[in-house]
């Protein structure tokens, strides 16, 4: 399972979470979603890695090793940071200006789905450009 597939699933899941949250007027699905992403980001026990390890016995997600680069930034994976950002942006409208930035989770959901379809994730590209691994 590649990160591309994970983004697609994540986007669709977020979409369903948002619908159910709005329909049932509860924040719990959103919290669960954000919590799951935070867990992955903090522990780096990413679903993709676990599945690939089960299937292939090792992690097939290519990680660019930059042995020459000793910057601390380069040691952090952009996928992990992406999870932090996504979870943060999903939770943010719940507490800050909900009437104004209510669309952010929907935007995130659509971008995640598109990233899954096109395999182009601007956020990850930006993070890599910034120096993350």
């Amino acid at each position: 399972m590649s990160e591309r597939h994970f983004r697609l699933i994540m986007g669709a899941a977020l979409w369903l979470v948002l619908i159910s949250s709005a329909y049932y007027e509860t924040m719990y699905p959103i919290f669960a979603f954000a919590g799951f992403l935070l867990f992955e980001g903090i522990t780096n026990l990413r679903l993709t890695k676990i599945i690939n390890k089960i299937r292939y016995g090792k992690s097939t997600i290519h990680q660019e090793e930059s042995s020459c680069n000793t910057k601390w930034l380069n040691k952090i994976e952009s996928e992990r940071v992406l999870r932090f950002i996504v979870s943060g942006l999903v939770l943010l409208p719940s507490y800050v200006m909900p009437d104004i930035i209510w669309f952010v989770p929907w935007f995130i959901a659509s971008m995640l789905i598109l990233a899954g379809i096109t395999n182009i994730c601007p956020m990850v590209m930006f993070l890599k450009w910034s120096g993350l691994r």
Binding site: W15, Y23, D99, S110
Partner: peptide
């Protein structure tokens, strides 16, 4: 408002996909 937002958001997502 929530339901409207759901409608709009879902529409945009579905349409964009």
């Amino acid at each position: 408002a929530l339901l409207e937002r759901v409608k709009v958001g879902s529409s945009i997502v579905v349409f964009s996909v």
